[in-house]
Design a protein around this nucleic acid. Structure first.
Lengths: 190, 190
DNA sequence: CGCCGAGTTGAACTGAATCAAGAAACGTGG
DNA sequence: CCACGTTTCTTGATTCAGTTCAACTCGGCG
């Protein structure tokens, strides 16, 4: 897959972008072909990068008292970055790593800001991504408040049926805020 | 407080806006002086409004199996809206109501979109609000996952010391995802 | 073959919910 | 201004979902 193809895919999956903007994106982005468990962002680091996943998957996680806790999963056609660092310019509380071998498009914050000033369509795309993310976080909060471990697991499966084959269970458990023991029991009770 | 004063306050609290943009905002916004428990958005309604709180406070809540559960609090110098309805144009899952007597500035979505196209500074302001909200939601998720009822309560007090005097405890409890009994015990154990 | 990490299963423990009953605070009308 | 009913808050006893700790199984792979 070429950069041009990937950017057309973004434009298709989110909002149409003018050709000039696409050309700028091609000029200012970087294509990364990486293996699984490739570290993209390290905790404590100031990261001013955002990654579009053309193929593969990634996760953000943190080490909470030494325990690896997944915070976010991203798959093909989604973006991933340390939002704290990228937007608020503080050290990232997360690590970000690929889960599967992946093809990524990397964008720098200053380029993003520049393109947003230059192309209203790009600015709208940025806003759309922010809003989508906001709504996802909101649903997640609702799930955490109102659902049992089992309900959260079943919902995750319903939303992303392929997740069970692509993500190690240990990551799913920590993402759902439950222990691997509980997840194991749920999967068998079923 | 006049509309002009309020809009200057927004500009000051978030990002500076050019005079022309401020003039447009004055022309296209609506000032509301309302009492406490005034309903701003009703569940199931398509709401295309966002409210800036110049004075007072408001909350978003939902009726989950008939129980009133607070989802969000907003105070002076903050914005509140049904993000689902405003951004995704779906029926609002929330009610929104004032808690205290409040002075509000109401903006329509189509005006917001118009101003964002017209003034890059306004577009940046919009983005800043989205990002701030995103980060708040993220912290809230972390709190829900890692903190005990007591820690969540103490953190809420630390972040907003005046909340105890301004918000009924029953709303605080449901916001924290705990029962009023548990909150009562926490407040006394202390 | 034997080790090793990942997954499963069991038993005891725990934080918070639920259920229930009092105590305080509040306001409304006599 | 007091009496009464209503709502809000507190306190206690019980229950429950999920954690923790621990032992055991299984499927690779050197």
């Amino acid at each position: 897959m070429t950069k041009a193809e990937i950017i057309h895919a973004i434009s298709k999956h989110y909002l149409p972008l003018p050709d000039a903007c696409i050309a700028d994106l091609i000029a200012h982005s970087k294509l990364l072909e990486v293996g699984k468990q490739t570290e993209l962002v390290r905790e404590g680091q100031y990261s001013d990068k955002v990654f579009y996943i053309a193929r593969g998957s990634a996760r953000a996680y943190l080490l909470k008292d030494g325990r690896d806790v997944s915070d976010w999963f991203a798959f093909e056609n989604e973006f991933v970055s340390s939002i704290n660092s990228f937007f608020a310019n503080v050290p990232s509380p997360h690590f970000i790593e690929t889960i599967e071998p992946s093809l990524l498009l990397e964008l720098q914050r200053d380029k993003v800001l520049e393109l947003a000033e230059k192309y209203p369509a790009f600015s709208r795309l940025e806003k759309k991504i922010l809003v989508d993310t906001l709504l996802k976080l909101q649903y997640r909060i609702a799930a955490m408040q109102f659902e049992t471990a089992q309900q959260k697991y079943l919902r995750l499966l319903a939303v992303r049926p392929d997740i069970a084959d692509r993500i190690p269970v240990t990551h799913m458990a920590s993402y759902l805020g439950i222990t691997i023991e509980t997840l194991s029991r749920i999967r068998h009770a079923k």
